[in-house]
Computed example of a mutant assay.
Amino acid sequence: MDVDALRTFVAVAETGQFQAAADELRISQQAVSKRIASLERHLGAALLVRTSRGSRPSLDGQVFLPHAKGILTATDRAEQAVRPGNRPLRVDVLNRRIAPAQAVYRFYRSQPDMNLDAVTLSTENAAQAAKAVLEGTIDASFRAMPAAEIPAGIAADRLLDVPLELLVGPGHPMSDAASVRPADLADHRIWIPGIRPDAEWAAFYETLSEAFGLSIDALGPHFGDEALMDALADSASLATLVGSGDRYLWPENYDLRRIPLREPTPVYPHLLLSRSGDQHPLLTALRDHLHTTGPQAPDDVWAPDWVDH
């Protein structure tokens, strides 16, 4: 059914004049007549009665009028819902405790009235997340995706390099260090449970291990962050790696230590994936926010060579 014809019928029914409806819709009176005639042919019913003083709805027109108004209201709402700036910006932050979630939260705090929806596709790998962006399930996603694997139609902006830190308990031999070189971790066990083989962070840690001769253990069930903190607090040899913007909580008596990695500083390169040419104003504002507020890494950073520098 022609929405323009419906809008024209409602305008004539409410104004009582073809010319008044034409003026309201900014079309010619001839165009009004053609739209009404087309709608009446489609419905097989006369919707208007012409009189010497104008037009009024026929009996069929009176029955049809509230339905026509309802269709126009639903159409207007549908258009408004997807118009850039009116619908929520849906951003996949991967995990609510890590740096992308914190960055998006700070962005929201800068303008608390913005229409923003942070989601987590934590079961998806980078390729699946990029597909979700292309299909419009989400508007953007933070992923460490190899440059060669970024699909056509996806824009990838490297906006959030997160420096890595060593997290250890008080009994660990490096617990009092002001900083640690990655190469110095070669003889220490680093436990990062829960790494899925198909996930981009598996590729990141594999590349990191090869670059610095590290032994990263992903074996064993992952019982959650609390269990990992328990294990670190009780061990004199166990360590893990976390991002500088990650939020972990543990009891004060655990006395866990976060130690920066230096010479060089490994960074986890979160790319902001979005559809090429997406004009959502909040997406532009988010990019600008990340440009100006992202973590300041030192000059001697290390990142995988497969990420777009």
Rank of each mutant, 00 (worst) to 15 (best):
G136A: 09
A211Q: 15
L116M: 10
L290E: 04
R106Y: 02
L116S: 06
P163T: 01
K131H: 13
I150S: 00
A227C: 03
I138C: 03
A127G: 10
M229Q: 12
A186P: 08
H309Y: 11
R35Y: 02
E263P: 00
V49C: 03
M114E: 08
D299K: 06
V133T: 09
R90A: 12
R189L: 11
T293S: 09
S110C: 00
G61H: 01
I190T: 05
P163W: 05
E124F: 15
V49S: 11
S209K: 11
D60F: 03
A130M: 04
A239F: 11
E226N: 12
S237W: 11
I190Q: 08
A211R: 14
R53M: 05
A140W: 07
R257E: 09
S58R: 02
I154F: 00
A20I: 00
A45F: 02
R143M: 05
A186I: 07
D217V: 12
A130G: 06
M229Y: 05
Y205V: 15
A74C: 02
Q279L: 12
L241F: 12
D198M: 04
P84H: 12
D305I: 06
L59V: 08
P146Y: 08
D184M: 09
L256T: 10
P295Y: 07
T137S: 12
E252F: 13
N115L: 09
R41F: 00
